[in-house]
């Protein structure tokens, strides 16, 4: 096993963390020019504005890390390099949650006026319903994705995800016709994902804790996940308890995805592409991927989000960050695909 030894892993992790930290600070130093001017300012602003930027870059870092982690876990779990955190219906689940919130939530909100705890909850707007929707969808996919003796089966799981996504999409369209007309732009914006300076610190902290839990758990699975990429019988014969491994990977991926939805909504492409890029650079060993992919995803999302944050004046307003992740990531992905013919 020339490719992986502990010291190499440590070096990769250290360099990765340092690079991520460096880019974090650089993102803090970038900002839009004066209002109405097509410029980008560099350098650290006064405290009040720095705090706004800090919130946003933090949120991007947490969401990115979580997406990169969930991507690796799900691609490994489903043995499918095209899996991403949203293939399992998690995205459509969260959108349905938000839709239900918009349709029925306002009546609820009025009946709870006066209770400070509930008001705080509603103040955080779409996050809680999005999270509930994601959890419900994930749970359904999990129930449908089990076969024989309760073990998760990759193919069944993907199919269940596609079905739940389709049902979710239909529900969104159904609810869309029930929504008061003014709320429709909200849902469109929600579906693209959005990172805001206004993200509540409580939410970022909660997402951060879930992320740390998921990441710690996932790091312990790396070696077993390598072996789980063989057929079930082979993996079994090599000493892998597949049912518990899949259950853990699924739960940890769901936790990480929930963390990213909490702070940024459903942002596509990051979770799909970062594991791929890392596999292309460092090879398919999950023990490395579980370190490199989340860090790369954090960098990717921080940079993309900083770009849209600083360039609103050039594009008649801020672009959705998903546009940049797809536009930059897509061609790079194709380049890698071309360089290496097979992506098993």
């Amino acid at each position: 096993m020339k490719a992986v030894n502990p010291s190499r892993l440590t070096v990769i992790a250290l360099v990765g963390v340092l690079l991520t930290a460096l880019i974090f600070v650089m993102c803090l130093a970038c900002g839009p020019g004066a209002p109405g001017q097509r410029t980008i300012s560099f350098g650290f602003p006064e405290m009040a504005i720095l705090q706004l930027r800090l919130t946003r870059v933090e949120a991007a870092a947490v969401a990115g890390t979580a997406l990169g982690l969930a991507g690796v876990l799900l691609q490994g779990l489903l043995r499918n390099p095209l899996a991403d955190p949203f293939v399992l219906g998690i995205s459509s689940g969260s959108t349905v949650g938000v839709m239900i919130w918009i349709v029925f939530g306002q009546a609820l909100e009025q009946s709870f006026t006066g209770s400070p705890w509930m008001e705080n909850l509603f103040n955080n707007g779409q996050t809680i319903p999005a999270l509930i929707g994601a959890v419900v969808a994930t749970w359904l996919v999990f129930l449908l994705g089990r076969r024989r003796g309760g073990m998760l089966d990759p193919m069944t799981l993907i199919l269940s995800g596609v079905i739940i996504s389709t049902i979710g999409g239909a529900l969104v369209m159904l609810l869309n016709n029930l929504v008061p007309y003014g709320a429709r732009t909200d849902i469109l914006n929600y579906m693209f994902g959005y990172i805001s300076e206004g993200t509540s610190h409580t939410l970022i902290l909660a997402a951060c804790i879930s992320l740390v839990l998921a990441w710690t758990g996932a790091l312990a699975l790396g070696g077993a996940m390598n072996i789980a990429s063989f057929s079930d019988a082979e993996a079994h014969s090599l000493g892998i308890e597949l049912s518990s491994l899949r259950l853990s990977a699924f739960a940890l991926a769901a936790l990480a995805t929930a963390a990213s939805i909490t702070v940024a909504g459903p942002i596509g492409f990051v979770g799909l592409i970062c594991p791929h890029v890392c596999r292309g650079i460092f090879g398919p060993d999950h023990r490395q991927l579980l370190i490199t992919s989340p860090l790369l995803a954090a960098i990717f999302l921080m940079v993309s989000d900083t770009f849209v944050r600083c360039t609103g004046a050039y594009f008649n307003g801020e672009l959705p960050v998903g546009v940049i992740t797809a536009l930059c990531g897509g061609p790079f992905f194709l380049y890698l695909l071309n360089r290496r013919r097979t992506w098993m």
Partner: peptide, 11 residues
Amino acid sequence: PTITRETLARL
């Protein structure tokens, strides 16, 4: 136009 909170703060 769409603006960020930072631009809003600068306004």
